[in-house]
Amino acid sequence: MTRQQQLNLLLRQLEQELQTLQLWQQSAPSSEALNSIEPFCVDSLAFSEWLQWVMIPRFDAMIQQQHALPSNSDIAAMAEEALSGINADTAVLLDLIRQIDSTLRIVH
């Protein structure tokens, strides 16, 4: 399985887990919120919203357009902090994010 295929599979599983945890939003945030210049849009979006409305669509576009994927990722560190305040079992969600990081990381 290619990195693109693996990432695509993980993104679909991430979507499903966000839905399972009832963190999946039906309506998009405002364009102002999505255009934040802060990392992870921390000033305008919840982390789960950033995953749904920024990260997943960007990776989907890269895969569809066959662009090179990033060679490094450390989303899990932010996820661990951001999801610690959620009153739900986020273990699967965190594991999927760690797998995404691992898939994107190229060891030289």
Rank of each mutant, 00 (worst) to 15 (best):
T2C: 09
R3E: 04
Q5Y: 00
Q5P: 02
L7P: 01
L7S: 06
L7E: 02
L7K: 05
N8W: 06
L9S: 05
L9Y: 01
L11G: 05
R12L: 09
R12H: 08
Q13H: 11
E15D: 10
E15Y: 07
E17L: 05
Q19A: 04
T20I: 01
L21I: 03
Q22V: 07
Q22F: 03
Q26C: 04
S30Y: 11
A33W: 05
I37A: 15
C41M: 13
C41Q: 12
S44Q: 14
E49S: 11
L51P: 06
V54S: 11
P57I: 14
P57Y: 11
R58Q: 13
Q64K: 15
Q64M: 12
Q64G: 09
Q64N: 13
Q65H: 14
Q66H: 13
H67D: 12
A68W: 14
L69W: 06
S71G: 08
S73C: 08
S73L: 10
I75T: 03
A77R: 07
S84W: 08
S84H: 10
G85A: 08
D89T: 01
A91V: 04
L93H: 02
D95G: 05
L96S: 00
I97W: 00
R98Y: 01
I100Y: 00
D101T: 01
T103W: 01
T103Q: 04
T103Y: 03
